[in-house]
Design a protein around this nucleic acid. Structure first.
Lengths: 107, 107
DNA sequence: CCCATGGTTCAACTAAAGTCGAACCATGGC
DNA sequence: GCCATGGTTCGACTTTAGTTGAACCATGGG
């Protein structure tokens, strides 16, 4: 029924550039964002470079992205559905997301 | 004669996206970058939100930006000349700089 | 109803980043 | 030559961020 814990998300107008940049400035978090580029994903599905990452650590990565307003984290059955906030980011920071996810990381 | 200490700068090809994003994810550093958008500046001229910032702290801000490849820091007489590496950034991460410096920060 | 699944939260710890005084160092001007 | 200027570097410290196990919790399935 999708009634699990509703986590807080900042509103579009409250998105802060430096917070977004910080959230994107970590390779693991950036990788998550890239995977979400092609559409929502179940959290359990999204793979990271560290395959055996503890779930508390993974949850923390999501928290940073969510609190910066980069992703939404919604209850979905037993799991979580992750959604990139493309529209909100585009509105607040036009071109930023495209530049970031489109670029070659460099290492 | 401009022969003062030559600080190390990463080459264009070595620029790393997450390092650049991290360097830009601080309000003070972002402000410096914005001031450099309109051309090189003497380090002594660039004003920060904290007017009485110790010079060691200011120097550290510049170091982070320089080591990420965002700015050049060249000897210039008794002082230092700061130059935004627009071309290198545009080459490596097209559209990124424009999106970042063009955006409203949000707080 | 019970339990496995998939996740959040907390607390304790480690690691990384920021702050800033003090020492040092070129330069340009006198 | 000397000194004021404008900066870098170092070291010690504070602060912030990342990591993880353990406890907890909602859900869906049997």
């Amino acid at each position: 029924m999708a009634t699990m814990a509703n986590l807080p998300h900042p509103e579009r107008a409250d998105l802060n550039l430096t917070s977004v940049l910080f959230a994107l400035s970590d390779p693991e978090r950036l990788e998550i964002v890239r995977q979400l580029r092609s559409g929502p994903m179940d959290m359990a599905e999204c793979s990271l470079s560290v395959p055996d990452m503890p779930k508390s650590t993974k949850s923390h990565l999501m928290k940073v992205l969510r609190e910066a307003g980069v992703i939404r984290n919604e209850a979905n059955g037993r799991g979580r559905r992750l959604i990139l906030r493309s529209d909100d980011l585009e509105e607040r920071f036009p071109g930023l997301l495209l530049a970031v996810v489109g670029a070659s990381v460099g290492d």
